[in-house]
Design a binder for these strands. Structure first.
Lengths: 233, 233
DNA sequence: CAGTGGTCTAGACCACAGC
DNA sequence: CTGTGGTCTAGACCACTGC
């Protein structure tokens, strides 16, 4: 058991004041210099404590004024989403239905922010688990030279992997939209659905650092084979 | 346009090395002292740069050894979830179906990690938007003295708000599970469903700092009134 | 042992708030 | 003007790693 750093201790003490209601949302906390005197430490140490609190969403800072207690954020969750793997299921095989270079329709051209005569790669796949079809997946990637259109490279790739050949994963912005819908005839056929199992629909949109779209995708999961898990922070 | 701090500039340069492939996953980056010499800055400045990279998931640090390029995390999203408000809909009225103190059944007692003779508050509500029922909501809160069981306090409260009377929001751990299901007769009745609109189901579980459960909840949203949105980071 | 990252100090200068 | 937070320096000691 090694000892806790001073800056962590100070951060904990301030956290405590907030958690116990001694400090409320919007209140100003002691100035950095006051905290220095209070704990008899240097300012850099205090600033390290405050950095923790800022990072964890406890406080925010206004230069020239002071540090203030922030309104807690309680509606954000970190959700794990991987097309091939969720908390109750894992894809063990895929079938490539189609890989084609197509021209986008109005809606797609708009989403990808390209003109209608540009090339787009369309990939359609079925995901399987133990022989059962569990998801129907369509992706549209903005075409560029060197794009991986080799089946082997595409078949088992997740969306981030496909796009990361061009743009590094770190600098990519990703969005998802999660919704529900009933399966139409086409999807029922693809997914061997004979009853009223609903679908979980995940739309993905990837853009680079400059917000230029790299691709969009939509994955239809059989409702009985997917559960997404998330936790606060 | 004020100038960018040195530590941000250094962080950007190292990011760039990673994003352009000059540094790959697992590679060691220059030691802190080397970076000091390279940019002619003090060590604290360099450490501030590295703190950014660590925070953004670019690198990790091994004391006594060095800093290394981290494998990018590409399956995590920050999802906004508020029972009363999502990206396509906002609840403007609720109906309290029931507020009761009950004894948990086996399953619930297990989930809440309490014995079966303890008291649990059950709250059942319907959420409405412009007169239409859009969600059916059930919550179970571990009873404690001072619990808000006044209708007025409960009717419009979200889950975090209900529980925050006891445990401060900051120190609470929240989990969600997102799934899909077809509406049974009871839910069809509650939600005025006459066709095959599926339901989006969100289970929530709140625990305190010591992982003691505070409450669980399950909300059934009409599929045509909900869409969850998330983004990377 | 020398080199690494982790912590901490006691200064400094700046831009900015508020009076 | 003083006080605030934001940046930055040039040291220091520690625990740890690897040789």
């Amino acid at each position: 058991m090694r000892k806790t750093p001073v800056y962590v201790q100070i951060a904990e003490k301030i956290k405590n004041k907030i958690n116990t209601g001694q400090l409320e949302t919007g209140d100003a906390i002691d100035s950095e210099n006051e905290i220095c005197r209070e704990f008899n430490v240097s300012r850099m140490t205090v600033r390290k404590s405050l950095a923790i609190l800022i990072n964890e969403g406890y406080i925010y800072s206004i230069p020239g004024k002071g540090n203030y207690v922030k309104k807690p954020e309680f509606s954000k969750y970190v959700v794990q989403y991987d097309e091939m793997k969720n908390s109750i299921n894992s894809v063990d095989r895929t079938k490539l239905l189609e890989v084609n270079i197509v021209k986008p329709d109005d809606k797609l051209a708009d989403k990808l922010r390209i003109s209608k005569n540009k090339n787009v790669i369309m990939i359609r796949r079925i995901f399987y688990t133990e022989g059962e079809p569990v998801a129907y997946d369509i992706k549209f990637l903005v075409y560029y030279r060197g794009m991986p259109i080799v089946e082997k490279e595409i078949q088992y790739a997740t969306f981030p992997e496909m796009v990361s050949k061009k743009t590094p994963l770190f600098s990519m912005k990703k969005e998802i939209l999660i919704s529900v819908e009933a399966a139409d005839e086409e999807k029922k056929r693809y997914l061997n659905i004979y009853n009223d199992v609903p679908l979980l629909v995940v739309e993905q949109k990837f853009t680079d650092q400059e917000n230029k779209p790299l691709g969009v995708g939509i994955t239809y999961f059989r409702g009985d084979y997917i559960k997404l898990w998330g936790e606060s922070l």
